[in-house]
Design a protein around this nucleic acid. Structure first.
Lengths: 222, 222
DNA sequence: TCGGTTTTGTTCTCGCGTTCACAAACTCTT
DNA sequence: AAGAGTTTGTGAACGCGAGAACAAAACCGA
């Protein structure tokens, strides 16, 4: 999809590896808080819940930041991963749809501590626009374009009902947002170049139900 | 991991396919609500946001439920998928940790409509135990074992802070729960045979940030 | 009844991701 | 200073999933 010309500083990092980097980052932060200065791939892999060989291969895509016979410097590796992901800088984020889930997301402290700053909460319902959630006041959805331009927002979160999600996504794309995190249970269609990630709570439960059903097949006979 | 003896009625369904079955189910439900009786693999694939070849291959693992030259009967296929996943029956679920996210989950209507019934909300904080959320009252965490046994709960949801998650998971496993949906930002360790799925909101944002950073590399020079 | 059309089910090939296994490189002890 | 002991980084093998392509099977019209 993306044609990459230079392969020196910007190597191709496989998608599966990118998805694990935040896990390593979190594990490293936990180690740092325990005042651990150095760790081996085995220790970090255990903390992150993966195989040590996989961890080493993942890290090798970023560069050669370990020392053979010793391991990795926790702070240094943490910085390198954070830099690769891009969370050394601050990312302004907007959340659209301030229902139950929107409230929870706005109050989630994990965003702030990981480089994401919620700059606006948006909703079409005028009765919600008097609220103040997590120190940010809810504003009318029609203000989105202005807010996006003002703060240079590149990432948007959709927490609306399914019926409204596509319309919101279209407006986000039109306003210049390039990445969308979608909590609405619907398939979004967006132009190429725009990234969408989907989190679907009931789908996760259904996957668990499938496996659970297989565990006790004698229970639900007829 | 699971050694499966019989391969006639219970075929091996690949994990990637299992993860997509709930998407097909939702798309079929939408079609049914539009009073559509029959659909081709192409139509259903478009509605689910996947390739039609992949859809046909996925469905072929369940059996041969289509008609060549015609397509699939929406209601029939919907029932077959629901049966495979196991959502034709009702799954009792408990939610532990009634903070912002726990509230949102308890109020989420998508669980109920897809075969999941929240039978209890649990929290260790006594000040929360006077609340009633979504028609279910919050009960002390220590009552979990009794509730699990009483209702035959097999699926548990963890929405606590990270520090409490492992303890909750241990207690869930001890009480007989076999599948856990974990929203706490930590790696759970559970005995073999217990399924854990993890949903991490900030990890999703970090993955988006990575891609977003790559889109405009001239922005963050120096 | 029979050829033409449509759409499924399946086979085959390709690419990605995971894991193993080992050489290279560093530290420590004597 | 040199050998023993660790641990990283990576080449190679393997397995799974995605997509293309096609044969089999159903319907339709004459």
């Amino acid at each position: 999809m993306t044609t990459r010309a230079s392969a020196d500083s910007t190597r191709e990092i496989p998608e599966a590896t990118v998805a694990r980097l935040p896990i390593y980052l979190r594990a490293l932060t936990a180690l740092a808080e325990s005042s651990i200065v150095t760790c081996s791939s085995e220790e970090l892999a255990t903390a992150a819940g993966v195989n040590s060989a996989k961890l080493r291969k993942d890290l090798s895509y970023l560069g050669s930041y370990g020392t053979r016979g010793v391991g990795y410097d926790v702070d240094y590796l943490r910085y390198q991963i954070a830099r690769q992901i891009g969370v050394t800088q601050d990312w302004p984020v907007i959340i659209v749809g301030i229902g139950n889930l929107g409230h929870a997301l706005a109050n989630y402290s994990g965003f702030r501590s990981r480089g994401f700053r919620v700059v606006a909460l948006l909703d079409t319902d005028p009765s919600r626009q008097t609220e103040v959630v997590a120190g940010v006041d809810v504003r009318p959805f029609r203000d989105m374009e202005a807010i996006v331009r003002q703060h240079g927002v590149a990432i948007g979160v959709i927490a609306t009902p399914a019926a409204a999600a596509q319309e919101v996504a279209d407006r986000m794309v039109a306003a210049g947002i390039g990445s969308i995190l979608n909590f609405a249970p619907t398939v979004l269609s967006v132009p190429p170049g725009v990234d969408v990630r989907k989190v679907d709570l009931s789908i996760e439960l259904q996957i668990l139900a499938y496996h659970e059903q297989r565990k006790a097949p004698q229970e639900q006979s007829v």
